[in-house]
Design a protein around this nucleic acid. Structure first.
Lengths: 133, 133
DNA sequence: CATAAATGATACCTATTTGTAGCATATTAT
DNA sequence: ATAATATGCTACAAATAGGTATCATTTATG
């Protein structure tokens, strides 16, 4: 009952960038966030491919946002890493509900999942304020 | 953002047993629930070891509840398969919060997780009613 | 121009989860 | 007794996620 590490790393990186704003290299982010460097490289590349950030190569290269922080929602990020389909799935693992939606988990779990989705869809990176360090 | 398959299988098995009540063999449950037979065997054994059900060996053996269905909560089942620690964790994957709990996800995510926990802890197998088939 | 510092791409290794197979043991029915 | 039908146990295989390593390419700077 968790997001993948890749998703957490992504959220972590992007929220850090969102509060510091400049062009940042993988090496710098690695130092600040203690995410394993080679893996972080892959994560950053895939965040670039997803369009949240873009990279510039060469000596003073790095990564910077491609979009407004207020236009990047947590749901977008999770969607790009883990996908969100799981939040539409039955807790019992059924593809289609064999109980005709009559099992009591159906409703209560649906509400819980909708609550999570609502949070993820309404929280953007610009909402993730932190005290600068 | 999901429970493991093992957890879903376990919930599925126990909720089926809860609505049919008799001693059931792995072979029978496999037929009814389409969970891969050898894996289901392992799941049933581990549910036995966790004390939810017990087994009887031999020709007319199988599995049956060891406790009242009203005393088995979804949280207990998930705890025994996936563990519940993940529901106490930061969405960004931090061990301790580097933002002094000031990031806005902190509160909202904490509330969401508490909501899930509340559902899991308050729903027992006897609440999982389904129409018999 | 040469070097340093950055990303791009890709192949590989490791750990965990999911799934398979087979033999040993127990119990019931014939 | 013996055969059939159960579970117990355990080793193995496959798929996925997480993590490492390396070389190529790009660009700024002395």
């Amino acid at each position: 009952m968790n997001f993948s590490k890749t998703a957490s790393y992504s959220l972590n990186v992007l929220s850090y960038m969102a509060t510091h704003d400049n062009n940042m290299s993988a090496a710098f982010l690695h130092e600040k966030l203690s995410i394993p460097y080679p893996y972080l490289r892959q994560v950053l590349t895939s965040l670039s491919k997803s369009g949240f950030i873009h990279s510039t190569r060469g000596r003073s290269g790095g990564f910077a946002f491609s979009k407004q922080k207020s236009d990047i929602f947590l749901a977008d990020i999770i969607e790009s890493t883990d996908g969100l389909e799981s939040l539409n799935k039955c807790i019992l693992g059924f593809n289609s509900c064999p109980f005709n939606n009559e099992c009591s988990m159906h409703k209560v779990w649906e509400e819980t999942r909708n609550g999570i989705l609502k949070v993820l869809k309404s929280t953007s990176l610009s909402d993730l304020v932190r005290t600068p360090d």
